[in-house]
Write a protein that binds this DNA or RNA. Sequence first.
DNA 1: CCGTCCCACCCAGTAAACCC
DNA 2: GGGTTTACTGGGTGGGACGG
Length: 315
Amino acid sequence: MRADRLVKLVLLLRHHKMLSATALAAELEVSPRTVLRDVEALSTAGVPVYAERGRNGGFALLPGFQTELTGLNHDEALALLIAGSRRGAQVFGLGSALASAMLKVADALPESYRHTAAGKARRLLIDPDTDLLERRTTAEEIPDALVTEIRRAVFNGHKLRINYTAKNQKPQWRTIDPIGLVTVKDQGYLLATKDGADRTYRLSRIKAAEELDCPANRPEHVDLGKAWQDRGTRFRTGGEQTTVTLRLDPAKRSQLLDTALTVTTEDDRLTATFQDAWHAEWALWQLGTSAEALSPQWLRTKLRDRAAAIVTRYG
DNA sequence: CCGTCCCACCCAGTAAACCC
DNA sequence: GGGTTTACTGGGTGGGACGG
């Protein structure tokens, strides 16, 4: 822990030229007092760190000092492997590991590349938290300790006991055989089997997890991408799909295409299929007065009741 | 002169390792 | 199991150096 922090301290000083003890403390998530001790430890170890007193002072390294830091720790290597999704690292509880790994990667670059690479990186934004139309849901915050426990069971190939709250149900403990972790549009999922049957759990709905000291029943090799695709296909084609006939403002057609499984047009009417009744209701509600559900009747009733409830609430 | 920041003490709490 | 040691960390205080 401390060794990691000392490395990070040196890297921070290399990148910022000079930082006060308070600023370093904030970066390292320790007290300024601890920073002073760490600086002293570095100095004792022969790292040429010096203090600049007074206003705008702080700690700095002698110019030209080159670190010879090699090796990433386990979590940092893991974070880089899944760095294709920055949010993925966050969802899997590896956000801070990714940040520190990136610092090491940047530090490993030759001086001439370092500035140009950092400059270019600042001009790219991958997978931001919201799009311009704010269609995406806000990212879910899942405690690191919880994800770490789940991740450990996945990697160790051990059974996992989770307290899971399924939709419209009470929280319940269940023992599962974890297969892998997936993130899709900021949502984290745990692929697993329970009593031999495929199961997919949303990480945000897992309230507690406990790795069991017992090997999980899982295939030797798993193509996670294919497994996810298979489950998605089954999800879309299975269950009780709902077909809706509606009129729609043509300008809103793309919004409907985003939520419906299929959409066909006939004269001025559209027929849309949704994966279930709830999604159909939600999609039509989102379209507001730009759409009118013509059938089924129960959907018209649901939308009318919703609107009436809103009118009652706001007078 | 005053605010900022480092320096050097002291003391105390916590967790892990070690020993009996 | 319980006591001791060690490492690490945090809080507090007074002082010195420096710059505006």
